[in-house]
């Protein structure tokens, strides 16, 4: 039997974990899909994948920026840079969206899934318009979104960190490690952003949504397995196993 280098297994596991982080992140982000675009559901009015990928890819850019300027940076710093970029991106998206919901559409922010906002304690049901499932972005959704963005950015940063190190040692890829690692990260990111969006069925409000607890375990398990396969593939591209 061929002895497998423990760093290879660590790398594969790290990629699997980061894929799972991205998957968990998607559950935190308040996405309302098309109903939210018409202010008939809580959340930002676009698809899960668009939001998760949008914030995650900004995280990827900030993480790679950190790595490019400080190649000796520890893993924590690269992950923090990714999380920060992602959080800034999603916070500004949610803020701009909130401005439009409040002053453009003119709806009070309310969640349909809970009676009281767990953070501010404000009652929600009295602000709900009839026939809708809430509107806008209540405080709890905003906070949940920020947590989700941090996880997603850190996840994207982690894959990039692992791969760029791995590929810069490869004979075949060598100097283009950043480009190849970035593109691969993007591929894994999209796969892991779409899987949970199938699980949540298009809309989720955040960690307070009952759906969160119901779908998170099976989505996270799926993402872990799929990301692990992607991890094996990624390591083999670098020429690690053969």
């Amino acid at each position: 039997m061929v002895a497998i280098d423990p760093t290879i297994i660590t790398n594969i596991l790290l990629i699997a974990i980061s894929g799972t982080l991205i998957c968990i992140a998607v559950h935190f982000i308040p996405v309302g899909g098309a109903p939210a675009a018409m202010a008939q559901a809580t959340g930002i009015g676009t698809g899960t994948v668009e939001l998760a990928a949008g914030s995650g890819l900004v995280g990827l850019i900030t993480a790679s920026y950190m790595y490019a300027n400080e190649p000796t940076a520890s893993m924590v710093l690269v992950l923090a840079a990714g999380a920060m970029g992602s959080m800034v991106m999603l916070a500004s998206t949610m803020f701009a969206g909130s401005l439009i919901y409040a002053f453009g559409v003119g709806v009070p922010f309310a969640s349909a899934q809970i009676k009281k906002d767990p953070i501010t304690g404000t009652r929600q049901d009295i602000y709900m318009s009839k026939g809708t499932q809430g509107q806008g972005l209540p405080t709890v959704c905003f906070v949940s979104g920020i947590i989700g963005a941090a996880l997603g950015g850190a996840g994207g940063g982690l894959i990039y960190y692992v791969l760029v190190k791995l590929y810069s040692q490869s004979v075949l890829i060598g100097p283009s490690a950043a480009a190849v690692a970035g593109v691969f990260t993007m591929g894994v990111f999209y796969v892991n952003a779409v899987i949970p969006s199938y699980g949540v069925g298009g809309t989720i409000e955040g960690f307070h949504d009952p759906k969160f607890r119901r779908v998170l375990p099976k989505d996270a398990f799926t993402s872990f397995v799929v990301s692990m396969i992607c991890g094996v593939v990624a390591v083999m591209i670098g020429g690690g196993l053969i």
């Binding site: 899909g33 098309a34 698809g47 899960t48 994948v49 668009e50 990928a53 075949l172 890829i173 190849v180 593109v183 691969f184 993007m186 591929g187 894994v188 990111f189 999209y190 796969v191 952003a193 779409v194 899987i195 969006s197 199938y198 069925g201 298009g202 992607c230 593939v233 990624a234 083999m236 591209i237 020429g239 053969i242």
Partner: peptide
């Protein structure tokens, strides 16, 4: 009806496609 809109499936297609394409082209040496 996927519940997430049609674009998601196009994106996962390319996500899977790019991972596999890089692997296939790189592994054969």
């Amino acid at each position: 009806g996927l519940g997430t809109g049609v674009p998601s499936i196009g994106q996962i297609a390319m996500g899977m496609g790019i991972v596999a394409a890089m692997f296939g082209l790189a592994i054969v040496k």
